[in-house]
C-alpha cells in the first residue's frame, strides 16, 4: 500500500518534469539555449511519442495580388511577417501598412524575408482591388503578398497566428482586428510579434527579425 503511493508520486513527478512549458503567445522574452540568446517558439506545446511538438502554422492556400497561389511552399526556407488588414480600413491599417513598409525597405536586400498581408474583407477586396492597392502602395509581389481567399479560412489563419480578427458592425469599416505583426520561421513556428500601430515596437521587431535571420 505504501509502495503504491510512492509509485503514484513518482509518476506524478515524472509527468511534472517532462511536460514542457506552454509559451504564452504574448510573451516573446528571449530564452538562453547553450549559452546563446534565442527567440522562443510561441504557443501551445504537446508531447507526442516522447517528443515536444510545437504550435505550427497549418497548411493554407490563398491568391495574391498577381493571381498567384500563395501557400506554405511559397515560404519554403524563408521567414515571413504576417498581418491582417482591408484596403478601405480607416483607422489602424494605414498606420500598420506604414510600419510594414518600413520593414520592407529596411530588409530590401534580404530575400529570405517575405511579407504576407491577408485581407479580411473578401467581398470588397477582390484580387483586382489588391492588385491596384499593391501598385499604389508601391510594393512587389516578389516580396510582399497581399492575399484573399475563403473568408472562414482567413479568419481561421488569424487564430493560428494569434491575431484577433472578426466581423463587428460597430467597428469602423465593419471589422474588428488587431494591428499585430507576427514573425514566422522556416519551420512554420511563430517566433515573435510587434504592435504594428507603434513605431517603437516595430523598431524593436527589426532586432527580432535579425536574430531569426542569424539563427542556424
Amino acid at each position: 500500500m505504501k509502495d503504491n503511493w510512492l509509485f503514484i508520486i513518482i509518476i506524478f513527478f515524472g509527468i511534472g518534469c517532462t511536460a514542457p512549458d506552454q509559451q504564452d503567445p504574448n510573451d516573446q522574452t528571449t530564452i538562453m539555449v547553450d549559452g546563446k540568446k534565442q527567440l522562443p517558439i510561441l504557443g501551445e506545446r504537446k508531447i507526442v511519442d516522447g517528443k515536444t511538438v510545437f504550435h505550427q502554422i497549418p497548411d493554407f492556400s490563398f491568391i495574391n495580388q498577381d493571381s498567384m497561389v500563395v501557400n506554405n511552399a511559397t515560404f519554403k526556407d524563408k521567414i515571413y511577417v504576417v498581418d491582417f488588414f482591408f484596403t478601405s480600413c480607416p483607422t489602424i491599417c494605414p498606420k500598420v501598412k506604414k510600419q510594414v513598409l518600413r520593414l520592407y525597405d529596411e530588409f530590401e536586400k534580404e530575400p529570405r524575408l517575405q511579407f504576407l498581408s491577408h485581407s479580411i474583407d473578401v467581398k470588397y477586396d477582390t484580387q483586382e482591388k489588391l492588385n491596384s492597392y499593391g501598385k499604389q502602395l508601391g510594393i512587389s509581389s516578389d516580396r510582399w503578398h497581399l492575399v484573399t481567399g475563403v473568408e472562414d479560412e482567413i479568419f481561421e489563419m488569424a487564430d493560428d497566428y494569434f491575431i484577433a480578427a472578426h466581423h463587428d458592425s460597430d467597428a469602423p469599416g465593419g471589422f474588428d482586428h488587431s494591428g499585430r505583426l507576427i514573425l514566422v520561421d522556416q519551420n512554420r513556428h511563430v517566433r515573435g510579434f510587434a504592435e504594428g500601430t507603434e513605431p517603437e515596437s516595430v523598431t524593436k521587431f527589426m532586432g527580432t527579425i535579425r536574430m531569426l535571420l542569424d539563427e542556424k
Binding site: P90, T91, P94, K95, K98, Y133, K135, Q136, L137, G138
Partner: peptide, 18 residues
C-alpha cells in the same frame, strides 16, 4: 482621429493610396 490615419497628420497623403 478620423482622417489622419489615411491622409496623414500633415495632410501629406500616403503613396498613391491616399
Amino acid at each position: 482621429g478620423q482622417c489622419s490615419g489615411c491622409h496623414g497628420l500633415k495632410a501629406e497623403g500616403f503613396r498613391e493610396l491616399y
